[in-house]
């Protein structure tokens, strides 16, 4: 069983939003809704300030509160790579999964179902990278199997200083931010 994930190099990300546009185009997202987005974090005390720009999305966690709380089984973990998906046909739009995500990565699609990043599973199953990864002009996003020690993402996570979002939430995210 593989565990698909990402390593995102925050030193290379310039916040160009190509990933955001690629996602919206590839997945035909409704206007005003995003499955991925750019976050800019400025921290420190003037003049010693640091700025991190990063592209964010569903963390496809290994411990998934959004799947656990779903009353119909619509939120589920896909056999292929442990990707967290929503079966739109089973979803009742109760918003429990939206509320249970510490990253606010989900939203309610105008058609009524919960929606989120799928890692472009339709592309990945055909051997392609997710749309966001494939268009990144700075090559800051790396996608692959985190359970394979020889994969590019595993090597990057092992060799570089990295962090995940809100580790104390206990969700075991599979997106690592290289610092």
């Amino acid at each position: 069983m593989s565990r698909l994930g990402m390593a995102i190099d925050t030193r290379k990300c310039v916040g160009c939003m190509d990933c955001v546009v690629a996602c919206k185009t590839e997945n035909n997202l409704p206007e005003g809704f995003d499955r991925d987005w750019i976050t800019t974090e400025v921290s420190g005390s003037f003049p010693n300030l640091t700025m991190q720009i990063r592209t964010e999305r569903c963390n496809h966690c290994s411990d998934t509160p959004c799947v656990s709380c779903c009353p119909t089984g619509a939120s589920h973990i896909h056999d292929f790579g442990g990707v967290v998906l929503v079966d739109h046909d089973l979803c009742i739009g109760c918003k429990a999964c939206v509320a249970s995500c510490p990253y606010d990565a989900r939203y309610i699609h105008p058609d009524g179902y919960a929606d989120k990043c799928t890692f472009c599973i339709h592309r990945v199953e055909n051997g392609e990278d997710p749309a966001c990864v494939s268009v990144c002009p700075t090559y800051c996003m790396h996608f692959g199997d985190l359970d394979d020690p020889n994969s590019e993402v595993s090597k990057l996570v092992a060799s570089r200083k990295s962090s995940v979002q809100h580790p104390a939430a206990g969700t075991k995210p599979n997106i690592f931010y290289l610092e």
């Binding site: 987005w37 800019t40 974090e41 420190g44 606010d104």
Partner: peptide, 16 residues
């Protein structure tokens, strides 16, 4: 100490 986070996301019912 400053810690300012801005996001491009503006999903309905989620942001701000």
């Amino acid at each position: 100490m400053l810690n300012e986070i801005t996001t491009s996301r503006s999903n309905h019912l989620i942001d701000p």
